[in-house]
Amino acid sequence: MSKVIIICDSDIILKGLSVILSDCNADEVFLMHHKKELNDYPHLSGYILIILPLNIINDYEIQLKQILINAINIKYLHLIFEEKTSITSSDIYIGDNPASIVKKVNELLNSFWTKKVIEPINDLTKREIDVLLLVAKGLANKEIADKLSISIHTVISHRKNISEKTGIKSASGLTMYAVLKKLIDIDEISTSDLI
């Protein structure tokens, strides 16, 4: 559910970029001559990457956020028209070759996901993650207690906290959670009977 919006008053750049980005990872690419056209798309939701010239007035980020109220996250890439030495990963120089532009866009689109993956994990303590991983691998509470040298009572209380924090109660549900959080490798699971 990611979208790219290109805002630029030049048709040449708009059309050129839209051709280059036709095989990027975004689900849709929108072209606009001016940021006020965004007002026609207040329903745009999900993850949105906006590409626009650097010279657009300073506080545009706040304005755009106010228009795109349904966006989960918004990121930006700046169009640079003159070659300079300080081109960063958040810039696109219009002289760049198409492949590297697509790569830059895809990297930013992917970072929407990686960010999402990391944050809820922080809610689990280190010990809870240890327990989670063993549950996900199919161990019973008793086995987990032995393995971590803690009492079965402690294991049960960790499991209770894990379920409260994640919203997942069953062992196979926790296995799936661990896979989605990239705590265990999906290939380990696909062939097993854990889920």
Partner: peptide, 17 residues
């Protein structure tokens, strides 16, 4: 319990693709 889990997995963790 498992339906509760599946519901939460889709709502909270699965990529909405």
């Amino acid at each position: 319990e498992k339906m509760f889990d599946l519901k939460n997995i889709i709502i909270k963790y699965l990529q909405p693709n």
